[in-house]
Structures are given as structure tokens and as C-alpha cells.
Design a protein around this nucleic acid. Structure first.
Lengths: 212, 212
DNA sequence: AAAAAACGGTGACAAAAGTCACCGTTATGT
DNA sequence: ACATAACGGTGACTTTTGTCACCGTTTTTT
């Protein structure tokens, strides 16, 4: 119980004490192992997840293609979920843990209440909306305007930054999925990028070079 | 002054009287002719536009490609603008009137005030965020998962629905811009679609057939 | 240790999309 | 009314991306 309190304070330094207490007493803390669903496309939600620790990957499926939208970090809400709190619609994206992740699940009735009661809660949610929106906009621009090669480089660079390590432990297939393309394409591109010294393909992982 | 009041009531039937009065007295009403910027990518905003009448097109530019994100209808905010109200960053999209449009521009200081003061204002903004987010998500899915041919058909269908008329008065070049492709591609596709009886290419406009 | 599964590499090909060049037609401006 | 600009059509070509088939290697399972 103590550790959540500390994490909550770290994530939201400007939160009111009363709100913090309510978050902790009404929110359900979940510790989710790596690679598990937090939210699954097509399901119905009755809670709003706030990430205290770990990393969550948001992605969408359409026509049997699934692709990465963006990541959610500690101190952020899985805000898309929020979209569906006030209207009973199935969510149109999925959220999966990328690491072991601690989530505080806030019940929808309380969320509505807090909106009225705590201005800082509104601020938190609005800021998150903003961030999520911007991230999605960025993804969209990438998809529309850049070739896969560039997107792959961006993807790997982002990934390295995210995990603070330039060894990327992913199979070509996984990468291809995130980018919405096929394994062969990734294989070919990594080879090409290797020849330009941008990366080195090791046994089961990719080493990024020349980070800048 | 009277007409704005009526429009505001129509757009937001559940709005409190006090809030409505404040919106009208502090908001600046602008009537913007077709094809003009409401918000321009790269600029800094100090107001939040609410659309009372007309139609606004949101689009983004990247690498000299500009493309349609989605539309904003009466009763909605140009919510992206909102993103930038609390932090002084340049907006990363543009908004252009598609028809003659009436906009109520709300000053940022008042917006912050209303958030605390009127729960219904928060609701309006949140709903708009939701809608904008969903629309963008939809666009992203389209771009990632469908071929241009399908996207063109969807685009034209949406357009027809939007203007409630299956005569689309646009040049191929304009359409290409919205979809982020080139004129020749649109020309070729319209010809192909004509052969499948999905549309007829007239002098300077396209007639959509088989609306469903 | 053997079998099965996952992985990465690669050539050949197909499909999709973008580009270039050029043309005749239609609108617009002066 | 004439010049100019915008529009749409189209063939030829290139680039980009996706798909198929097949292979040897590595990892995991049994």
C-alpha cells in the first residue's frame, strides 16, 4: 500500500491529498506481467486504468492487420479507455503490457464524481487526452508521409530510447506487426540498413548504431 | 445576437443558462467564408473555436504532404486547438472552412474558468475530445489498412453523405491532396470505378452511384 | 536426443502506387 | 475574343511494397 502511494505521488506531483486518498482507496491496484492485455479491442470497459509503473503499448486492429499506435508511460492514463466510460461502446483498440506493469483501475462511477469534485483530476485527464491525441497524430503523419524504411528506423530509434538500450530484442515478425507490414520486408530492410552501418543484426536481436 | 443564441441552444441542448450567457458574452462570433483558415499549422492559439454552423476540415502537413484528418461539425469544438491552450506550443494541424462557417471563439482564460465553474462545459469538451480522437483513429486505420482505391471510395461516400448530395464538385487534384496522393492516381481510379458503375465522371464533378 | 517450431535470408515475382511527359478540352481572366 | 491557366486522360516507366516458395540455422519442446 505504501509503495503505491509513493508511485502515485511521483507520477502526479501536483495532486491534492484528498484526491490521492480517494484514488488509492477506490482504485484497484493490479500488477500485470509482461505481454498481457490491459484492454482488448471489442470489449466493454467499466474502469479507467492509470499507469503507475511499467509500459503499455496501444495498438489497433483492422482487417486482420494489427499495428502499433503509441506507448503509454507511468503517470498517464489509458485514456482511450476513457472514451468509452460514458457511452457503452466496445473499445476500438487494444492495450498490452510491454513490461511488468502496475496499473490503478479506477471505477467509472468514481471517475465521474471526481471530475466534478477535483479540478486537478480534470487537468490530469485533459492533459492525457492531449498527449494521446498528439501521439496518434504523430503516428498518422508517419504512416501517411514516410516510407517503411524511414518508419522502421524511427521505430527502432524510439524503441531504443524507450528502453534506454540500443539492443532491440525483437523478432522481425514482431517488428513487422507493429509497423503493419510483413516479416520479409523487415528482413530485407535490416539487411540494407546494416550495409549503411545504421544497425547490426545479431543472432536474435538488433543492435542500433549511431544513435542521435 | 439572437441567432447565435438559438444556434448555441441547438448545438448544445443541455447547456446551463448561465454558461450559455457567458459563452455568448465572452465568445467572439466570427463568420468565416468558405476556404479560409480557422487555425493554421505552426501558429499559436489563444482561443478555442466552437462551431455553430457550417463545416470545418482538419488536416495536417508533413514533408510537404498535406492530408485530411477529419471534419468538424456544428456543435463541436476544434478540440485540437484545445491541446495547445494550456501549453504554448505551435499547433500541428490546420483547420479550414469547407463551407461558410460560424464560429464562436472562446478566450483561453475564460475556458479555464468555465472548466471549474460548469461541469457541463467539461462534459462538452471531453465528448469532443472523444469524438476527435475516434475520428483520427479511424483515419489512421484507413490509411494503414486499405488501398487507395478503397480509401477513395470511402472518401467520396463520406463526402456525399456530408453534403447530402452525390454530386461531388471537386477536382481530382483536390481529392488527391486530401488523400495524400497524386492527381494521376485519382484520375486513373475514377476511371476504373466508373467501369464498375460506382460513379460517373462529369465535366467538373463526380456523380456517385449506388449509395449504400 | 530427436522432433517440432520459430527465425532469418533470399530470389523471383506480382501488385500497388508514384512519376514523367504530353495532349486535348474546358474554364477564366483581361 | 484571345491568351492563359486549370483540368482530366493516358501511356510508359520506376519505385515501393507485398507475396510466395524454399532453405538452413537456432531455439524450444517432448
Amino acid at each position: 500500500m505504501l509503495s503505491e502511494k509513493i508511485e502515485l505521488s511521483q507520477c502526479f506531483p501536483f495532486i491534492e491529498k484528498d484526491l490521492k486518498d480517494e484514488l488509492l482507496s477506490f482504485g484497484e491496484l493490479k500488477s500485470i506481467p509482461e505481454g498481457k492485455y490491459v484492454v482488448k479491442q471489442g470489449s466493454y470497459l467499466n474502469f479507467l486504468p492509470i499507469i503507475l509503473d511499467g509500459l503499455i503499448k496501444m495498438y489497433a486492429e483492422e482487417e486482420e492487420v494489427e499495428f502499433l499506435l503509441y506507448y503509454i508511460h507511468p503517470g498517464q492514463c489509458c485514456i482511450l479507455s476513457f472514451n468509452h466510460l460514458f457511452s457503452p461502446e466496445a473499445v476500438r483498440f487494444s492495450a498490452v503490457t510491454e513490461k511488468e506493469t502496475k496499473v490503478l483501475c479506477l471505477p467509472i462511477e468514481k471517475v465521474k464524481e471526481w471530475f466534478v469534485k477535483y479540478p486537478s483530476f480534470t487537468q490530469i485527464i485533459l492533459k492525457d487526452f492531449q498527449r494521446n491525441y498528439e501521439d496518434l497524430l504523430n503516428t498518422t503523419k508517419q504512416v501517411v508521409c514516410y516510407k517503411i524504411e524511414d518508419r522502421l528506423v524511427n521505430y527502432l530509434t524510439e524503441k531504443a530510447k524507450l528502453q534506454n538500450c540500443n539492443m532491440i530484442q525483437m523478432s522481425h515478425k514482431e517488428i513487422a506487426l507493429d509497423l503493419g507490414t510483413s516479416r520479409e520486408v523487415v528482413s530485407r530492410l535490416t539487411k540494407k540498413l546494416q550495409s549503411t552501418n545504421l544497425l547490426v543484426q545479431h543472432k536474435r536481436h538488433i543492435e542500433l548504431k549511431n544513435l542521435n
